[in-house]
Deep mutational scan, measured.
Amino acid sequence: KELVLALYDYQEKSPREVTMKKGDILTLLNSTNKDWWKVEVNGRQGAVPAAYVKKL
């Protein structure tokens, strides 16, 4: 499985998103959308802005 690093804090704004903190390591589930990537963090799945994460 592919991992990404959170470059910034992000507070979810809808139920389809997830909150992450700078430095979090997230499991990347889907990166086909260039703006929003689906990730899993702390057992929750949701979208985060692609510009806020970097593939490891």
Score class of each variant (00 low, 15 high):
Ala47Arg: 15
Gly46Ser: 03
Gln11Cys: 13
Val18Thr: 06
Leu26Lys: 01
Asn42Gly: 12
Ser31Gly: 11
Asn30Leu: 09
Ala47Asn: 15
Ser31Asp: 15
Lys54Ile: 14
Leu56Asn: 03
Asp24Glu: 11
Trp37Val: 08
Lys22Asp: 01
Met20Tyr: 02
Ala51Met: 11
Ile25Gln: 04
Tyr8Pro: 01
Val18Asp: 01
Thr32Arg: 11
Lys22Tyr: 04
Gly23Thr: 02
Trp36Asp: 01
Asn30Ala: 11
Ala47Glu: 15
Thr27Asp: 04
Gly23Leu: 03
Lys22Leu: 06
Val53Lys: 02
Val39Trp: 01
Glu40Leu: 09
Ser14Glu: 07
Ile25Thr: 06
Leu3Gly: 03
Ser14Leu: 07
Asp24Tyr: 05
Val41Ile: 15
Leu29Trp: 06
Val4Ile: 07
Thr32Gln: 12
Lys38Tyr: 15
Trp37Ile: 06
Leu56His: 05
Glu40Ser: 09
Gly23Ser: 02
Leu3Asn: 05
Lys22Asn: 03
Glu2Gln: 14
Lys13Trp: 05
Gln11Pro: 06
Thr32Trp: 10
Trp36His: 03
Gly46Asn: 01
Thr27Val: 15
Lys34Gly: 10
Met20Ile: 14
Val18Tyr: 05
Glu40Tyr: 08
Asp35Glu: 13
Val18Phe: 15
Leu29Tyr: 05
Thr19Pro: 06
Leu7Trp: 04
Val41Cys: 11
Ala6Asp: 00
Leu5Lys: 07
Ala51Gln: 11
Pro49Glu: 02
Val41Glu: 02
Ala51Arg: 14
Lys21Cys: 11
Asn33Arg: 10
Thr19Ser: 15
Trp36Thr: 04
Leu7Phe: 03
Asp24Asn: 07
Leu26Pro: 01
Val18Asn: 04
Gln45Trp: 08
Ser14Asn: 13
Asp9Tyr: 05
Tyr8Arg: 15
Leu28Asp: 00
Trp36Asn: 02
Asp9Glu: 05
Ala50Ile: 03
Tyr52Leu: 14
Asn30His: 08
Leu7Ser: 02
Arg44Pro: 01
Ile25Leu: 09
Ser31Tyr: 09
Asn42Ile: 04
Thr19Asn: 06
Asn30Ser: 13
Lys1Thr: 12
Asn30Lys: 07
Lys55Val: 13
Thr27Leu: 14
Lys1Gln: 12
Gly46Lys: 05
Pro49Leu: 05
Leu28Ser: 01
Leu28Phe: 04
Thr32Glu: 14
Pro15Thr: 10
Leu56Gln: 04
Ala6Ser: 05
Glu2Leu: 13
Ala6Arg: 01
Lys38Glu: 15
Val53Ile: 08
Asn42Phe: 09
Val53Met: 07
Lys1Met: 13
Val53Asp: 02
Lys13Gly: 08
Tyr10Gly: 00
Ser14Lys: 07
Val41Gly: 08
Met20Trp: 03
Asp35Arg: 13
Pro15His: 10
Asn30Phe: 07
Lys38Cys: 15
Val4Met: 05
Thr27His: 10
Val48Gln: 00
Glu2His: 12
Met20Arg: 00
Met20Gly: 01
Gly46His: 04
Gly23Met: 03
Ser31Thr: 11
Thr19Leu: 04
Gly46Glu: 04
Trp37Cys: 05
Asn33Ile: 05
Trp37Asp: 00
Lys22Ser: 07
Ala6Lys: 01
Lys38Asp: 15
Tyr10Cys: 03
Asn30Tyr: 08
Arg16Phe: 14
Leu29Thr: 05
Leu56Pro: 02
Leu7Cys: 12
Lys1Leu: 13
Trp36Lys: 02
Ser14Gly: 12
Glu17Ala: 07
Asn33Val: 05
Lys21Trp: 09
Val41Met: 13
Leu56Trp: 09
Ser14Trp: 06
Arg44Val: 09
Ser31Asn: 09
Glu12Trp: 07
Asn33Trp: 07
Ala6Asn: 00
Ala51Tyr: 10
Leu29Val: 12
Gln11Ser: 11
Leu5Ala: 06
Glu2Trp: 14
Lys13Arg: 14
Glu2Lys: 10
Leu28Met: 03
Gly46Trp: 07
Val41Arg: 13
Leu26His: 01
Val18His: 03
Lys34Tyr: 08
Thr19Gln: 04
Lys1Pro: 13
Lys38Arg: 14
Glu12Cys: 14
Lys55Met: 12
Ala47Gln: 14
Arg16Val: 11
Asp24Arg: 03
Val48Gly: 00
Thr27Asn: 08
Lys55Asn: 06
Trp36Val: 04
Gly46Thr: 04
Lys54Gly: 08
Ala6Phe: 04
Leu7Met: 10
Thr27Ser: 08
Ala51Phe: 09
Asp24Ile: 04
Leu28Gln: 01
Met20His: 00
Val18Arg: 02
Val18Gln: 03
Pro15Asn: 11
Val4Arg: 00
Asp35Ala: 11
Tyr8Leu: 10
Lys38Gln: 15
Asp24Ala: 08
Val4Asn: 01
Lys13Val: 08
Asp35Leu: 14
Glu17His: 07
Lys54Trp: 10
Asp24Met: 14
Asp9Asn: 09
Thr32Leu: 11
Val48Ser: 01
Lys13Pro: 05
Pro49His: 03
Gln45Asp: 06
Gly46Phe: 13
Asp35Lys: 13
Leu5Glu: 11
Lys1Gly: 11
Glu17Thr: 09
Leu3Ile: 09
Val4Trp: 08
Pro15Ser: 12
Lys38His: 15
Gly43Gln: 06
Glu17Val: 06
Asp35Cys: 14
Val53Ser: 00
Trp37Lys: 00
Leu7Thr: 04
Ala50Pro: 06
Trp36Tyr: 08
Lys21Pro: 00
Lys55Tyr: 10
Asn42Thr: 05
Leu56Gly: 03
Gly46Gln: 03
Leu3Cys: 13
Glu40Ala: 09
Lys1His: 13
Ala51Ser: 13
Asn30Gly: 08
Tyr52Pro: 00
Glu2Ser: 12
Val4Ala: 13
Leu26Glu: 00
Asp9Lys: 03
Gln45Met: 11
Lys54Glu: 12
Thr32Tyr: 11
Ser31Trp: 09
Gly23Asn: 06
Leu7Lys: 05
Lys54Cys: 15
Val18Ala: 05
Ile25Cys: 08
Gly23Ala: 03
Tyr10Met: 01
Asp9Trp: 05
Leu7Asn: 02
Val18Ile: 14
Trp36Leu: 04
